[in-house]
Design a protein around this nucleic acid. Structure first.
Lengths: 137, 137
DNA sequence: CTGTTATCTTCACATCTATGAAGATGATTC
DNA sequence: GAATCATCTTCATAGATGTGAAGATAACAG
């Protein structure tokens, strides 16, 4: 026996929490602003390409390399290197220095090694195990 | 899309190093295989979206939240949450648990907090400053 | 069983991304 | 000055990505 004729139920619930409103509100308050998430995502997006990862790994190993050497090391074309290095520059991950006709790149940020190592740990590849002999930290 | 992972790639392309052939060869030998770079990039790609970053931050703060609460906290639609949570699941970043009609998500990996913190440090936002009090690792 | 709620999946599409080709820029040598 | 080399930029385009709409699934209430 029901006569409730599908009375329009107020949709004040679609926008609110379902299960734990208090907790949700508390968490939402503590979350950083949209801009921070956006910036973080953009940082990770720069690292979200195998070619750029190889460029970074090459610079981690080699310290300083010019574009054509980076191309040879990573297997990327020179053009692809240039494109990708530009993104890395924009993300303040690499720094460059002209020397005659060549442009030499180095890593600009000490955090990058840590980021890659933690990423490798996440994958189970045992990140912090690279003892190249010339750098240890 | 691209080339096969660390198979036997007949890479006799432009091996014409320009400036420091010895160094380049040495660095190339020490680089991990293509597959590792690819996996690393894919891991970072999962983090390369503001919505997913917000989901992770929410779980870092809240510990365990159901989908609708996550939607309310992050500001994403429920559908977008579901899509993004699937990617996070595929990347083994979150774990889920059914409880009645709800599905509760938690972070599945201790490295994620560190990744985000290092990313924030890179941005100059001072990452490791969150003491929620209920979790210590 | 039927209906409702929470979540997931499939499809579709607008947007974004990666990269080669071709030309521009900057540095060096003649 | 011209020629050459290393690198960068612009443009074009195939392919990847994010997300809403709509339907499917699962769990519960009655």
């Amino acid at each position: 026996m029901k006569m409730i004729p599908d009375a329009v139920v107020p949709l004040e619930r679609c926008e609110v929490e379902c299960v734990e409103p208090e907790k949700a509100a508390s968490v939402r308050e503590r979350l950083p602003g949209e801009a921070v998430s956006q910036e973080l995502a953009e940082t990770f997006r720069v690292l979200a390409d195998a070619g750029r990862v190889r460029l970074i790994l090459a610079l981690l190993e080699g310290g300083e390399l010019c574009v054509c050497d980076l191309a040879a090391v990573t297997g990327l074309s020179q053009t692809a290197c240039s494109h990708n290095l530009r993104l890395l520059r924009a993300g303040r991950i690499v720094r460059y220095r002209r020397s005659g006709r060549n442009v030499f790149y180095t890593l600009d940020d000490a955090h990058i090694r840590l980021l890659l190592d933690v990423g490798l740990q996440h994958l189970g590849h045992e990140g912090p195990r690279r003892s190249t002999g010339n750098r240890n930290d």
